[in-house]
Design a protein around this nucleic acid. Structure first.
Lengths: 297, 297
DNA sequence: CTGAAAGCGCTAACAT
DNA sequence: ATGTTAGCGCTTTCAG
């Protein structure tokens, strides 16, 4: 009988099994775009970890479809858990997800109140990276960020403002820009910034990926980093440590955020109970000084 | 009634629907690792295109589980189609996939005979990139590649050998290395290469990602590119064009391989018939000369 | 301990 | 047009 199954190459229909067991062995990953290297790293570690534990991963990237539709599909598909970076500070989706009873973990971004999540201590990251520049004598510091409806951006900027205020330095509103985080927009802003009568002596980009676009533009203009302007990012993605890039950045190091998110989710799934308490994990940032920052001339 | 459904937030159970319709609106993506920037770009475009067409994407990366197990799960899950880069030249999985009757497309890599695929003309790419170096006067050219059981690597190397032979230059076997494509191994090889009594004047890496690791190592050794050694890759991934990298490379440009693969697969799914003919698409490579190659001193 | 039957939540075919 | 029913391929329960 068992041999018969092998010779006939019997494959159980997992759809039918799911219908009765009410478990799909599938987790949904709703992630920011792979154009951002940070999400490349989380996606990679999440899928690998899920696979290792016998879970399939359904992947969605924000942008192509409406998030609400994605979440609905995900729920209709009876996934065992949800891993999601794409949540706003005040997002009606948060309550839908909570009420669904499906185990979930947010990562990188979080809702304003409550929820399970793993994030970087973004306020502290913003503060520390700014202090580094301040310590180097910079005062005219530009700040390029994304929408403040997203916790990551709001908190990093809060840290920036805090450090500036503590140093007693007024922020020039001409030097702070909210963008959609695309390279195209960062390039435009950088160009404008460096063409100012009085350009900044240092630039903070809210993510390493944005800093990379910024660097590209600065170099295209024939300017040099850090001689003409210092540049920093946040996240410390892989490519930032490349010898040809050497971007000063700040990130979490001992553990991978994607793995933490996936491990916690799988734990929640396997315990199977309604959560006794929220899982709110905040990773401490570590400054990595490389070659894109120098003392102000 | 319709309103009732809305107020009660009725979500149809897509699992149950799939069981009866025998269609899951899901495609499986079995991809090479995201550590390779090439697969970042294909994964991104594939998922986005699938989502746009109303398909969900189940993603697996090779390495974490045995490929055979992944393919079995995928089939048990009754996906509507399979997109796969992870196929060897002579791979028993190829026949299993063919016999399953599930529409599929291979991309980047292909089986030796038959199958639906979209690939770069890798032989030509290997040939062209080698000719570029030859034209610059290089003769002592190193070649770092991956396993030749994979079409991409076999064909690129074939192109390299062809160009060398046509130029009447003997390949020094001391200068060609097969690696597992990881940065760690490429670094080790590069170090050995540049410490040779007579180091190469140029290095070809079979992928841009490997070239990036190679560049990193060369720079760490205090050597300069292209003054001490010229360096090229193949794929022309995004980061290669960055002002701080400027890697000379070769790739396809007018279209994205991931999109072509996904579009063709979705077409096959929607036509619903047994394929009248194979889809074998080969993209023509285009050489992009940047700053990592120079005339031999 | 083995085998038959019920039922998961839908769709499609059929009858009203 | 509307409502009823069979059945998709499994797991689980219940009888034998």
């Amino acid at each position: 009988m068992l041999q018969a199954m092998e010779t006939l190459r019997y494959q159980p229909n997992l759809i039918a099994r799911s219908l009765v067991t009410n478990s799909t062995k599938t987790i949904a990953l709703i992630s920011g775009t792979l154009k951002n290297g940070f999400f490349v790293e989380t996606t990679d570690s999440i899928i690998n970890l899920a696979t290792k534990h016998g879970y399939k991963t359904m992947v969605y990237f924000e942008g192509e479809a409406k998030l609400k539709d994605i979440v609905n599909t995900v729920m209709g598909n009876k996934v065992d858990g949800i891993l999601m970076s794409s949540i706003l500070l005040d997002d009606p989706l948060f309550h839908e997800i909570e009420q669904s009873g499906i185990p979930y973990m947010f990562f990188n971004r979080r809702p304003r109140n409550g929820g399970n999540y793993v994030v970087l201590d973004n306020t502290r990251a913003g503060e520390m990276i700014t202090k580094h520049l301040l310590d180097l004598g910079h005062e005219r510091i530009a700040y390029i960020t994304g929408e403040p409806t997203i916790s990551t951006f709001l908190e990093r900027e809060t840290g920036f403002k805090k450090a500036m205020e503590e140093a007693g330095i007024e922020i020039d509103p001409q030097l702070v820009f909210v963008t959609n985080t695309t390279s195209a927009e960062v390039e435009k802003i950088t160009w404008r910034l460096m063409n100012l009568d009085e350009p900044p002596t240092a630039i903070i980009c809210a993510t390493d990926t944005m800093a990379l676009a910024c660097m590209d533009t600065i170099m295209s203009m024939g300017l040099s980093i850090p001689d003409d302007v210092s540049l920093v990012g946040i996240d410390d993605i892989k490519i930032s440590s490349h010898r040809a890039i050497q971007l000063t950045s700040i990130g979490h190091h001992k553990f991978k955020m994607g793995e933490i998110a996936a491990e916690n989710l799988i734990e929640m799934i396997q315990q199977g109970e309604r959560p006794k308490q929220l899982r709110q994990i905040v990773l401490q940032p570590e400054l990595i000084v490389r070659k894109t920052t120098a003392r102000r001339k």
